[in-house]
Design a protein around this nucleic acid. Structure first.
Lengths: 135, 135
DNA sequence: GTGTCTGCAAATTATTTGCACGTTG
DNA sequence: CAACGTGCAAATAATTTGCAGACAC
């Protein structure tokens, strides 16, 4: 079994089940995947895996911060293993998503990226001042 | 009728129907809203408005670039009128979304924002090199 | 052994579609 | 009047839930 994935589950206080290991391995293999891609990939390893299990686990893996959701315009959300902060290059034609080191972004010029940038979106998540007060 | 909205529809080559005007006005009023919020708001003006019409129009308004989708982790997508590039402050507690001028972001210090930043996400949409080749 | 997890099936919610009729330009 | 848009109802897709049995620890 994937030792890395097993340890990761333990560290985050989740029971180590074959389904969880399979789901995490599937995401690790694919880099980024939506629910259905995870399900399809996971089934190749564990054919009895149910879609409901994928949904339930994605939820708890996100709650424990083992996974991160990436909501994307015009596509279903993809999921990735939590890793150091980075940005995404998202192809508007094929929908492919690729990680990019945000730091490099400003030292590289955009023409060196081999990607025609159409739109840049910076989303900042946190707690607004209303919510800070009402606690 | 909202002259601004009517002109906007004409400029983008869409027929001006009361439903479209109502939908755009609803979004303008709310700033950002998801499908259901748009539907609810629109019904107050036009009680016979159907949800299917909202869906169909959101699609065509996005295709003609009159609207922009904002996909958000852990929420349904919101929609906003196209305007100059900007970023979003998204509260992880109440889900509220607020525009922020990206340019200001780097001159203001984060403590002046009155928003506790937890996560910053830069998504870059465009055309990847595979798609550029295969055209 | 106990609490958590899984798979299944059913329920719910979200989105899309086909079609008859109405409206826009 | 031709093309397009609308509302309705039905179809499809996406997600959630309840529950009985299985498994992790």
């Amino acid at each position: 079994m994937q030792m890395k994935v097993v340890n990761s589950l333990k560290e985050h206080g989740l029971k180590v089940t074959p389904q969880r290991v399979t789901i995490l391995s599937a995401i690790e293999k694919k880099g980024h995947a939506n629910i259905d891609e995870i399900y399809q990939e996971a089934k190749t390893t564990n054919p009895t895996m149910s879609l409901a299990t994928v949904y339930k686990n994605i939820t708890s893996l996100i709650e424990t911060k083992l996974l991160k959701e990436v909501a994307i315009n015009n596509q279903k959300s993809k999921y990735e293993l939590s890793k150091k902060p980075h940005s995404h290059l998202i192809c508007k034609k094929c929908g492919n998503l690729e990680d990019i080191d945000s730091h490099n972004l400003f030292t590289l010029n955009s023409d060196k990226l081999d990607f025609d940038i159409e739109e840049v979106e910076l989303n900042i998540y946190g707690i607004c001042n209303q919510c800070k007060k009402s606690n």
